[in-house]
Design a protein around this nucleic acid. Sequence first.
DNA 1: TGGCTAAGTCAGCAATCGTTTACATATCGC
DNA 2: GCGATATGTAAACGATTGCTGACTTAGCCA
Lengths: 197, 197
Amino acid sequence: MTDTAAPRRRDAAATRLLLLDAARRRFAADGYSATTVRDIAEDAGVNVALIHRYFTSKEGLFEACLTGVGDELGRTAGEDLTLDRIAHDIAARLVGPHTAKHPNQILLLLRSSGDERAERIRQDILGTFAVRLAAAAGWRADLPDADQRLLSAQVTLATAFGLAVLRSSTTLEPLASAGHDDLVAPLARLVNALLKP
Amino acid sequence: MTDTAAPRRRDAAATRLLLLDAARRRFAADGYSATTVRDIAEDAGVNVALIHRYFTSKEGLFEACLTGVGDELGRTAGEDLTLDRIAHDIAARLVGPHTAKHPNQILLLLRSSGDERAERIRQDILGTFAVRLAAAAGWRADLPDADQRLLSAQVTLATAFGLAVLRSSTTLEPLASAGHDDLVAPLARLVNALLKP
DNA sequence: TGGCTAAGTCAGCAATCGTTTACATATCGC
DNA sequence: GCGATATGTAAACGATTGCTGACTTAGCCA
């Protein structure tokens, strides 16, 4: 019985990703301060000291996680967002296939480390996301009711985040075990009421 | 110059409330694990050891905070909740007058300590609150579409929580500085779309 | 193949955490 | 007024935290 696991091949980029991946899960699920660097390192199967080698600090790692989801959202939820697909997209991001690999990464955008730079990154992502949502609903900055429309988009965004939080931290039924289609129904009505021009 | 502050009169119940009050603020604002018992004690102007005397542990104090907001919600958001007052009530709870004394106490219901008993308390409060919301919209357990209606009520609840989180942890404009009336407008449309029978 | 550098390991630092214990003193019934 | 007891204080405990430095070893190129 060779129970001694074969030591992984040395690869800086690969272990960096391992750490980033484990960190994203932990931070999203447990929050910043409840997560220890030793937890992350153990999840990644990597020595603790490497966290500081590749990310200089726990804060640095958290920052990297934030920019990670930022880039991912930038790619996934692209420019071609149409009004009648918003409800579907939100539902997909709550129960979709990526949820299996990266459960509830949206939550990461609500986790706070207290660090100023991380906070700025978070603000930027949320801001551009809200604008993108509003734009899909015909919003433009020079319209007379621009503020009210943007506010409505942010309320819609709030619903998405609230659903993510409730589903991840409670067993509130029927919400907790609602599937994609179950969520699309009320979300479509919500989007229609809030964002329809 | 008598700069030595007059030592408060010894009063167990009073200092218990001082601790509870400070704890509710801290836990709601910073979360469970980011809050230290020394922070709470200092805010309350009270010795750290008294936390363990009156609440046996940090977890115990957190539990007491939860049941506190539970009772308060039970009293404030009474039985007489009508459909067309929901939007107003939610908005009031986000920017209302109690917000001055107890800013964002709703957030406490989303903070997790990991403790099992605290988790149960949280679940109970959220569950009954969702049912109460649904009931105001004509929901009854024996209706054929009971689940869908309850789900819609929980989505509405999710919006309220999402708004609380976003407003407390970001400076997302115009949401962050939106007043009561600004919020009622979209919330009324939302409630109308989701809960109207 | 030998050696140099990058990649990973190990042990332990100082600080802070929740908690406990031993002690001081205000408060109140008698 | 006196003593019993509830209330508050002070100091420290062990455990855990993020982090660091000195060390070992694998990987690659000349």
